[in-house]
Nucleic acid binder design. Structure first.
Lengths: 242, 242
DNA sequence: TAAAACGAAATCGTCTGATGATTTTAATTG
DNA sequence: CAATTAAAATCATCAGACGATTTCGTTTTA
């Protein structure tokens, strides 16, 4: 009678694998400042830091690289990805349409299940930072806001990709008038809650565009040297599909 | 000995690592039909198939998973990702804005370097398939077309992510009127070559939307069972904790 | 002394082998 | 024949090893 064992066997994804824990910890460390862009990820270091074997560390690194958080060069190891100014612009360009989509979908789905509550809570939480100075805690809450938006939208693929984008926003939370920023959030949230798709999408896009423009006020020293124009490595071979 | 080797070492990443080769081969196998959606990726099998060690296989699998090509479940191994109908819709929704962006950017940059030549070549190549029946070779050329478009656009982040999307288009190249499809491509290409951003973006989006609609004519058997709406696995998250 | 050459150390890519955990299967039993 | 149990398969992770490549400090040389 006790299929109990079988009953409980369904989800099973409770425990995170070791590499996943490392990935998560490193990303968290990025948000908390323990890891910074450009920093080198040395396998022996991570091995002792997390008390795991090399294979585990390598898996974690590989995954970080695949997510775009780190970059790898053969025999030269991995670094926390350090965007050049133009790369940052590229990421924001993608974020513009991506978060725009999230906002539009969220506006469409506000009536479903607990979407409204969830989203409202995230928004309120975000708004409590209106008077606080920039902090990593703010970045966290802002990401939760975007995440709530994405989840409400209901596009799984978007959910999957959004974290990878957000990581790069860590360094863009500067040099932007706070009042303007929070005004953006409000407009966005109100449009979403009102179910106004067009407005929500436009507001989201506009906000990201503003962030992108604010990038111009950030000194070069914030970014990695831009090797774009120089030698566009024509990809020895068609890397992806043979 | 001589530093001559070092001089020439600039390109450096000429050779693909073993895991990368496996990843590529599996993806290629997907395009060629040797691997199918839902198929299980068993480590010992791959070990003997590619004559590499387990660690190497695992790295390849982890990377496939990170790219969204495969899914992993702890202690239950990896499968080639099999999209449900709604997941396919999600992916296409993202592709719509993503390829739209690529088209728009490409239209903007047609005057740069050899962009026009590169893109024109890809387009011509694609058009040679106008009378051919569907084939994996066509899928390959179509992806090259999209890739040329993306490269012309100049957004590095888009380049990075596009391959991960394209993989899922493998199964969507069916059940769609060919003439209509190639008409789409032509409109897209002409707008891009003419530098008409708005038109190019709209054409790209429209095309993907058409593909998405064509999805409705595909039987359920093509997709994985859709667990999305039904039981959001909120259920047994905390059954243990004994 | 500054630049080039050299060699040792650090680090990476990959392999082999091993152990415990978990799932899947096959066999046994009531 | 269903249910339980034992065996096999597979996975997660670890430890150690070896060659390849880069990095870095030291020596040599101009």
């Amino acid at each position: 009678m006790n299929k109990a064992t079988k009953m409980t066997s369904r989800p099973s994804q409770a425990r995170l694998s070791s590499p996943d824990q490392i990935v998560r910890n490193i990303i968290q460390g990025l948000y908390e400042g323990q890891f910074v862009a450009g920093q080198r990820l040395i396998e022996p270091d991570l091995m002792s830091r997390y008390a795991v074997s090399r294979g585990t560390v390598r898996e974690a690194i590989k995954r970080l690289a695949a997510e775009g958080v780190a970059t790898q060069t053969t025999y030269r190891g991995a670094h926390i990805r350090h965007l050049s100014r133009s790369e940052a612009r590229d990421v924001l360009q993608l974020l513009e349409i991506t978060i725009g989509l999230a906002a539009r979908l969220a506006a469409s789905n506000m009536d479903l299940l607990g979407a409204r509550e969830q989203f409202t809570a995230a928004h309120k939480n975000l708004m409590t930072f209106v008077d606080s100075p920039d902090s990593f805690e703010f970045v966290r809450v802002r990401n939760q806001f975007y995440r709530a938006m994405t989840i409400a939208g209901g596009n799984r693929e978007l959910e999957r990709l959004m974290p990878g984008f957000q990581v790069h926003l860590i360094r863009t939370h500067l040099k932007q008038p706070q009042n303007e920023r929070f005004a953006d959030y409000r407009v966005m949230a109100e449009a979403i809650l009102a179910g106004n798709k067009k407005t929500a999408e436009a507001a989201a896009q506009k906000h990201i565009r503003r962030v992108s423009e604010a990038l111009n006020n950030i000194p070069d020293s914030t970014f990695a040297p831009d090797a774009t124009n120089q030698q566009r490595q024509f990809e020895d071979e068609d890397l992806n599909h043979a």
